[in-house]
Amino acid sequence: MSILEVKDVSKNFGGLKALSNVNLSVVENTVHAIIGPNGAGKSTLLNCFVGKLIPDTGSVMFDGQSVLGRKPYEINQMGISRVFQTPEIFGDLTVIENMLIPIFAKRDGSFRMHALETVANESQIIDQAEQMLEEMNMADKRHMHSASLSRGDKRRLEIGMCLSQEPRLLLLDEPTAGMARADTNNTIDLLKRIKDERDITIAIIEHDMHVVFSLAERITVLAQGTPLVEDTPENIKVHPKVREAYLGESV
């Protein structure tokens, strides 16, 4: 059963054709990777899923409902969470405060004026946040200023914040970009654990083939704004068109 259904999506920026007739279907509870050379339109496509961009033509359906024309916060409330290429966290707040916000958003919706309640009294939400920090191995850092975390910790915090909302679809935009090897491996292990332990669909954009082949169950190769081929990792590795377009001599 597919949870995300992309049909005939095209997007032009002035004269530049960023996406043309993209069709894609992400099956529920799988890890689906979208790969492709620089400028292939991967990030543009992702931005069409989350409400940052609206495609010129075509449709994007999440769980039977169109996401087009909805604001990012509405799409998030539908059950899509997004991890950014550079970790987007609340740098001025502490780690635990960062973790509280998505849980409040999940419980209270996009706006609720609870100005006379006290955060410290919300024991249920605090418990949930502590638990998620535990799961991310960050419990000892809970009172740290999140801006002072390492790149890898920021990434884990961001993933934890997304997971704490129990999204049905998690979008990852190059989650290991700019990371040291050890951090990359930690992130892969974390994502594997998430995939095994949760009912969650993951769509991932990635440059690092090591990451893609260790996680993905399904891969779509994008080149010049069109899907070249969609298949399992094993077949993608040996596909002649893919080798030519993207992997080149490196495989």
Binding site: Q77, I101, F104, D108, G109, F111, E117, V119
Partner: peptide, 25 residues
Amino acid sequence: YRSPFGLMLRAVKSNQQRMNYTGLS
């Protein structure tokens, strides 16, 4: 300051992008 509302206001100052993608208007 100590309410969830106050926490959200501090989140606005810190990162509006993350707020929008966390389901908050």
